[in-house]
Every structure is written in structure tokens, then in C-alpha cells.
Design a protein around this nucleic acid. Structure first.
Lengths: 215, 215, 215, 215
DNA sequence: AATGAATGAGGATTCATTCAT
DNA sequence: GATGAATGAATCCTCATTCAT
């Protein structure tokens, strides 16, 4: 009869959190593998080792589950970006590091690419709530703007570079290679995922971006 | 008013061809809008104004219909590429033209991007038949190799550039921007599809690619 | 401009007959393999190497095609029975011969068994036309009656044997063994279709029937 | 009015079992009436008064539902056989009783015949799992062997009779008459299902089997 | 006589979701 | 918090059959 919450409640809450996280991870994998349309709630439950009903309990429906997965994916990449501390580096090193980071992140998180694909196939309607989109807004663009400006001032970078354009170019070069690797490999009869090939791609990307920036 | 029998057979054959083409176009649009998983055979039939059964009559099943759509999309872009006659231009002009072409083609054929997305989601299994993949192989890479070599010889381009890498970079820069424009617009709160924004993107791409190539 | 029918017509008629026979044989095999419900008109056309439309041209619909197949099957077995000339044999030999014939016919025409099954699954509605059924009526029962009577008179057979009952027993013993051979083989773990096993079955059947008839 | 929680779990489990049993019975009737190919899952659901989806929930697909029905049918007849206690009877009585039992069981369970027909049409592929087939193996054959041996020893039966052959003959005589009664009735223009005709058939069967066995 | 094209009415199966406890 | 049972509305696909020539 104590007025304090029983420890059981705490434990339950922790269980609840854990269950949600488990579902989210399972859903992320399922959506990444099959897209939004191809994903199966049944399979997500199976992957999570939890009852299907629980998914609805926590996430209401498949759409909102996808939204939650998407937001988590954004939060994850934003967190990784935060850890880069690009402003501590010299401009050229900072850009090089950003290229490397983007490449490695996509390489290590292939699900991110597919999720992005699915989100765009559905016209980003899962980010329609601009409130939410704003929260996911990367401070990276501002950081990159600052880096470009510093580089320009010290004469190591050309001027007039739009940081958003540059960011999209970096991302695009990494993304297309990885996302289309099956198609490209099939069409060109060349395995694009060997360690050597991956290394060459990163080199090429750095060369292009820095070759362009340097005056 | 001739007394000859009308070329009945021909006409019938043409009807069959027309039906197939109609289905293919309808399917292309449906797949582009909803992805492979989200596409509905019923809707394809409706779009085509033809009986659903006919789709199965000609294309066996949804998977193979998708494959046919994909192959058609590849044939279309290859045909457009052929018409560029890049080797008639000076190296820098040729590259600039290729960048413009890629950009405009993607812009004018948004369905191509979505189809590519879907194909990649399914790990290019629709191109698994290597025979087929080979046929889709773009001669563009060889053309680009020749252009790069010419440029290098006349001193206008840097050496050591892998044409496949360059092609993937050009495609990736255009693709990512257009394919992910919904997400990007939402997250960065900026409409990326205004005529001006599109113009700026093309400029940026040309600058990056040529800025990199020029020594 | 001659008034005689051109030979072409004759040829065509012969083609027509041949086509019908081809369809009938293909249908027989298809019905035998898959039953009436499982048979596919498409497959019948394929088996026959003829256009599906032709099946409808000659046989109106699947039901009536089945009926035609069934009637043909009956005509075939009746023809074979006619060739036995049982009345030329001594009673015991005649019965022995009938047992052998039944056994061998079922063994060599397994489709007959399945067709019979299908017909009965559908309550013989394909024989509903009693006119037709009568035509298929086997004179064998009368022949058997005569044999039994002769045997009784010469003291080699017991009396009071109903020829229809006997005929059904002979048929049933052969039929069940062959028709159920897969089930029986699976359940008893014994291959019932080896030459030796088949020989033993025939022996057994003869022993049972004659053991019963002999006083 | 007890304060104990009601055995909720048990009841739910029982509901599940009941649903499965209901589906099984409905499926048995549908398969018996129309065969595997002609049976309609929709109709089975209707007959069961349950949602069609539930059939797939419990039985995966039509094929496996058929298999379950078949296994149940075998279990049922085996259970009935067990209750015969043939070894408590004198050899001749035991055989007579087996003949009667077989006849009556088929007569009262016409669905068993049709199911067997369907199973055979599909070449017992539903019993392919030999593990399962073995479980359905009737101990009747061994019992019959014992009976035949006893009869032989006391001089009332001839020797050298294979119990499996005898069993198949008994079953076949009953089965063919009942299973093909529609065809037979149509062809011979004689109603084989009147009480008198049924009585005569049983008599005939007993006469044949015992006439054969008695020395 | 023969055939390729086309169709409407199903048919098995799937799926997201809700019920009941 | 967690779960097994149940469902209605699709969804892909099939089938017998007809059209048009």
C-alpha cells in the first residue's frame, strides 16, 4: 500500500521500452528489405519475436510504424554526424572527412538507403508533419556552410559553393553507387563491392569533391 | 478500293503489339508511382483500358511484367544516349552535354528513377539473367573512356579518370537530388523543384564534374 | 466449276476426324491424370497440339468433352471384351480368362480406372442420358450368365451365382488393388507393382473367384 | 459463483480445437462431394460457418487441409477396426465379421470412398511422408494373418493365403460396388442401392470370401 | 477448318487489423 | 504488458469460354 510506484512498474516500463525498440529494429530491417509496400507486419512480429498485436499496441498501424522507423533512422544518422566535430578540422580535411563519413555510413547502414527510397516513393508523406521534419533537419548544412566559408577566406576553396548542393552531391555519389550496385554489377559485369573497388570509389569521390573545391 | 484481301493478319498482329505496348506503358506508370510491391495489377488493367486477364496472357505474372517494364526503360534511355553523338564534340563539351542529358532525362522521365529504385530494392534480381543485362550494357562507358582519353591527350583533362566512376558520379548527383527531392525539401524546408532551383542544380553539377576534370 | 465435291473436302473431313480423335486422346489423358475438376482445357489443347478453340468447336464444352471421353472409353473396353469369345471356352477356362482379361485391361489402361472414378464422383451424370448408357451396356453380363449356367449344369460350378455380382467382384478386386496401389504401397511399405507382385495378385484373384465357384 | 478465475485459457484452447474440428468436418464433406480439384475453400468456410481466413490460419493451404482430412479419415476407420476384437472370435466368424464391417463402414461413410478416390487420383502424394503413412498402417493385416493361421491350423481354412491380398479383395469388392454404383446402375439399368440389393451384395461377398477360404 | 486475341466470373491466398481475454 | 483467435477486404492469378477473322 505504499504510495511509491512499485518496482514492478519500473520493470514493466523498461520491458515496454525494450519491446518497442525490438519492434522498431525488426521493422527497420523488414522495411529496408522489402520496402513499405512489400513489408509484412507478420514478418516484423516474427523478426521481433513478439506478438503481432503488440505492434499495433505501440505503433497504431503500419504507416505510423514506418514513420517511427524513418524518424529513428534520421536520429541515428544525425547523432553520428554530431560526433564528427568537423569544425575542429582544417577546411579540406573537414570536407574529406565528411565524404568519408557519408560513404562509410551508407556502406555500414544499407538500410538507410532503402528507407530513404521508400520514403521518397511515398513522396515523403511520412515527413509531411513539418514539425517533425524540422527536428530532423540536419545542422550539417550550416556546419558545411561555415567550412566552405572558412576555406574560401583562407584561399583554399573556390567561392560561390552552395553547401546544400555540395552535400547532395556527396550523398548522391555515394548513394547511387551503393544503391545501384546490383544493377551496375550486372550490367557492367564487374563486382563493385570488393574491398578494392570500395576503396577506389571513395578515392574517386574525394578527388571529385576536392578537385572541384580547390581553386 | 483494291480487290486484294486486306492484310488482316498484319492488323491483328498490330493489335496484339499495341495491346502489349499499352499494358507496358500502364504498368510503367503504376510501378513508377507505387513501386513493385505497391503496384496493383487491377489498376494497371484499368490504366490500360484492357482486361486484366490480358496482362497475364502476355506477361505471365506481375514479376515478369515488371521485368519487361524495366527492360523497356533501359532500352529507351539507351536509345536516347545513342542520339547524343558525343564523339562529334570537343571533350569538355561532350562531358557537359552528357551531364545535361543525364539531368534532363531524369527530370523528364521521373518514372525511370522510381523503376530503378524498385529494381535495386529487389537486388536487381530482374536483371539476373546476365544475357539480358549484357544487352542493356551501355556503350556509353566506352564512349566516355574515349572522350576522357582525348581530353587527356589534348591537355584539357586530368589523367587517371575511370569512366565508370565518372558516369556513376554524374548519374548519382542527378539521381539523388531528383529521387529524394521530397525528403530533401521537407527536411531542408526549401522547394528544390522550382525552375530556378533546377537550373542551379544543373549548373552545380557541371561545375563539379568539369571543375574536377580540368587540370 | 465441277459439281462434284472437290477432293479437298474429303481431305478436310479426314483432317476433322483426325483432329477430333487427337483431342479425344489428349482429353482422355488429361482427365485421367487430373480428374474432371483438375483437368485444364488449355492443357488438353497443348497435349493435342491444336488450338483451344477447336475443342469448343467440336465438343461444345468441357463437360461434353468429358462425356465423349467416357463414352469412348466404354466403347474401347466393350470392343476388347467382344474379342474374348468366352463362349468358345469351357466354363472354368472362360471365367479364368475373364479374370485375366479384366486384370490386364485395367493394368494396361490405368486411365480407365480414373475416368470411372471421376464419372462416379459426379454421380454418373455424364451417363444420365439412359439412351447412351444402354448402348454402353455390356453384353458381358449375359455372356457370364450363360457361362455360369453351363458350369452349373456340368457340375463344375455352384449354383445361385448372380453374374452381375460376380462381375463386380472381379472388377473390384482388380480395380482396388491398382487404383489404390500408391496408398497401399505407402501404408504397407511394399511395392505392389513389381512384376512378381502383379503376378501374385492375378493368381490370388483367380484363386478367389474359382475357389468360390467350384463346389 | 466461485471466486476462482475461470479457466479462460482452457476454454480458448477448446475454441481453437473446436474451430479446427469444425473446419475439418466441413472440408471432409466438401472434398467428398467434389473431389480435391472441385472443392471450394469458400464453400468449406461456409459449411463450417467460419471465416475463410481461419482455414489458412490453421491449415496453411487447400492441399494440407486435404491431407489433414485424409489423415483424420484414416484415424477414424482404424479406430473402428480396433473395436472389432476379431481375435475373440472363431476364424470363420472373424472373417465374416470383417467382411460385414468393411461393407457397413463403407456404406455408412461414403465420404471415405470419395476421399480415397481423390487421394489415389493424386497418387497418394498426400501420404508421401512415409512417417505418416506408417502411422496409418493398419494392424488389421497382422490380425488377419493370425486369423488365417488359426483357421489353417484347425483345418477350417485353406493354407497359403496372403492376408494383404485377402484384405484388398474384401475391400475391393465392397468399394467397387459402392463407389461405382452410379455408373453401374446407369449401365445395367438396375438400382443397386435398394435395401434388398445391398443385402444381396453383402451375402455375395461373404460367400465369395468364405467359399474361397474353406477347403 | 483453324487460330490468336480477349474476357468475366471466380478461386486460392494474403494482409492489415481487431476481438477477447 | 501480452497474446492466440478471428475477420473483411483485397490481391494475384486461373479458368472456361467467346470474339473476330
Amino acid at each position: 500500500m505504499s504510495t511509491e510506484p512499485t518496482p514492478v512498474t519500473d520493470e514493466r516500463l523498461r520491458d515496454a521500452d525494450r519491446s518497442q525498440a525490438t519492434i522498431l529494429a525488426a521493422a527497420r530491417d523488414e522495411f529496408a528489405e522489402h520496402g513499405l509496400g512489400g513489408a509484412r507486419v507478420d514478418r516484423i512480429a516474427e523478426r521481433a519475436g513478439l506478438n503481432k498485436r503488440l505492434i499495433y499496441y505501440y505503433f497504431a498501424d503500419k504507416e505510423r510504424l514506418f514513420q517511427a522507423v524513418l524518424e529513428q533512422a534520421y536520429r541515428d544518422i544525425r547523432a553520428a554526424e554530431q560526433a564528427l566535430h568537423l569544425l575542429d578540422l582544417k577546411p579540406a580535411d573537414a570536407v574529406r572527412r565528411l565524404v568519408e563519413f557519408t560513404w562509410n555510413y551508407y556502406l555500414e547502414h544499407p538500410e538507410f538507403l532503402t528507407l530513404l527510397n521508400s520514403a521518397n516513393l511515398h513522396r515523403a508523406r511520412h515527413l509531411a508533419d513539418s514539425q517533425r521534419a524540422r527536428e530532423l533537419n540536419s545542422p550539417l548544412i550550416e556546419t558545411l556552410a561555415e567550412i566552405l566559408e572558412r576555406g574560401r577566406r583562407e584561399g583554399s576553396f573556390r567561392g560561390g559553393v552552395d553547401p546544400l548542393q555540395l552535400y547532395v552531391s556527396i550523398a548522391g555519389m555515394a548513394y547511387f553507387y551503393l544503391s545501384n550496385n546490383h544493377t551496375l554489377s550486372a550490367v557492367f559485369g564487374r563486382d563493385l563491392m570488393t574491398p578494392k573497388a570500395l576503396q577506389q570509389r571513395l578515392s574517386h569521390m574525394s578527388d571529385v569533391i576536392l578537385g572541384y573545391l580547390l581553386p
